[in-house]
Amino acid sequence: MKETVTQINGVPIRRNFVENLPYNPHLKVLLKDKRKAGILSEVLFWKKVRAKTFHAIDFDRQRIIGNYIVDFYVKTLGLVIEIDGSGHDLEQEYDDARRNYLESLGLVVFRTTDFEVRNNLSLVMKDLEDFIVQQYGTTPSSQIP
């Protein structure tokens, strides 16, 4: 059995660390600009998860994986969190290719929208809890239909 990272609502959450992720150092310059942009939904989400305040889980913000910069990343779970803005409606093909690439590395992707984060953050956090329990919970009763 894999090591337990934390518990969510009494359900042990197993570790799913993905080693040797590809990294494009040329994207490092874009990280600073992206962080300075201060996209409201990302800032609001970050305030909820930074410093292990969300179930003692350590989140990284603006992480380079391959040729992509993901919004948030949880190393111990191999979990990518993406917050899609309104422009993502027009980028379905790009989003699908990105998701397929990330999943091919053994990562799991949780997506939410900018609108949901700005207007119903508590629901987004509950959905994330449920998603983590479903993906990483260690007991059969933790599986959410």
Results as ranks from 00 to 15, higher is better:
residue 71 D to I: 02
residue 91 E to A: 13
residue 114 D to T: 09
residue 120 N to M: 05
residue 97 A to I: 14
residue 66 G to H: 01
residue 104 S to N: 12
residue 76 T to H: 04
residue 68 Y to H: 11
residue 68 Y to L: 06
residue 76 T to G: 06
residue 95 D to C: 08
residue 82 E to G: 13
residue 82 E to P: 14
residue 106 G to S: 10
residue 107 L to C: 12
residue 90 L to P: 07
residue 72 F to E: 00
residue 105 L to A: 04
residue 100 N to W: 00
residue 91 E to S: 11
residue 108 V to C: 09
residue 116 E to K: 13
residue 117 V to H: 03
residue 100 N to C: 08
residue 81 I to P: 10
residue 104 S to K: 10
residue 83 I to S: 06
residue 66 G to M: 03
residue 83 I to A: 07
residue 87 G to T: 15
residue 113 T to F: 02
residue 73 Y to S: 02
residue 103 E to C: 10
residue 83 I to L: 12
residue 107 L to I: 08
residue 112 T to F: 03
residue 92 Q to D: 08
residue 109 V to H: 04
residue 97 A to G: 07
residue 79 L to W: 00
residue 90 L to D: 11
residue 67 N to W: 01
residue 84 D to Y: 03
residue 111 R to P: 01
residue 75 K to M: 03
residue 116 E to N: 14
residue 104 S to A: 11
residue 99 R to C: 07
residue 70 V to L: 05
residue 115 F to H: 14
residue 110 F to S: 08
residue 111 R to L: 03
residue 97 A to V: 11
residue 113 T to N: 12
residue 87 G to N: 14
residue 91 E to T: 09
residue 100 N to S: 15
residue 86 S to I: 15
residue 67 N to M: 01
residue 79 L to C: 06
residue 93 E to A: 07
residue 116 E to P: 02
residue 102 L to E: 00
residue 115 F to C: 13
residue 100 N to L: 14
residue 92 Q to H: 05
residue 73 Y to F: 13
residue 80 V to H: 04
residue 119 N to F: 04
residue 98 R to M: 12
residue 95 D to P: 09
residue 108 V to N: 08
residue 103 E to D: 02
residue 79 L to Y: 00
residue 83 I to G: 07
residue 89 D to I: 15
residue 117 V to L: 09
residue 112 T to V: 08
residue 111 R to F: 02
residue 82 E to C: 13
residue 106 G to A: 08
residue 87 G to A: 12
residue 90 L to W: 07
residue 85 G to W: 06
residue 97 A to S: 14
residue 110 F to I: 14
residue 84 D to T: 11
residue 111 R to H: 10
residue 76 T to Y: 00
residue 98 R to H: 06
residue 98 R to E: 03
residue 107 L to F: 04
residue 87 G to R: 11
residue 75 K to N: 10
residue 103 E to F: 00
residue 74 V to E: 02
residue 91 E to L: 14
residue 86 S to Y: 10
residue 101 Y to Q: 04
residue 83 I to Q: 06
residue 107 L to R: 05
residue 68 Y to I: 04
residue 74 V to I: 09
residue 112 T to K: 09
residue 93 E to K: 13
residue 110 F to Y: 14
residue 66 G to C: 05
residue 86 S to H: 12
residue 90 L to I: 11
residue 70 V to D: 00
residue 103 E to A: 01
residue 89 D to N: 15
residue 77 L to H: 00
residue 104 S to V: 12
residue 118 R to S: 02
residue 105 L to S: 05
residue 106 G to V: 07
residue 103 E to Y: 00
residue 96 D to K: 14
residue 105 L to P: 07
residue 67 N to F: 01
residue 94 Y to G: 07
residue 121 L to S: 08
residue 70 V to C: 06
residue 86 S to D: 15
residue 69 I to G: 04
residue 97 A to M: 14
residue 98 R to K: 15
residue 94 Y to A: 09
residue 121 L to E: 09
residue 108 V to F: 04
residue 68 Y to T: 03
residue 105 L to W: 01
residue 94 Y to S: 09
residue 103 E to I: 08
residue 108 V to W: 00
residue 92 Q to K: 15
residue 80 V to Q: 05
residue 90 L to C: 08
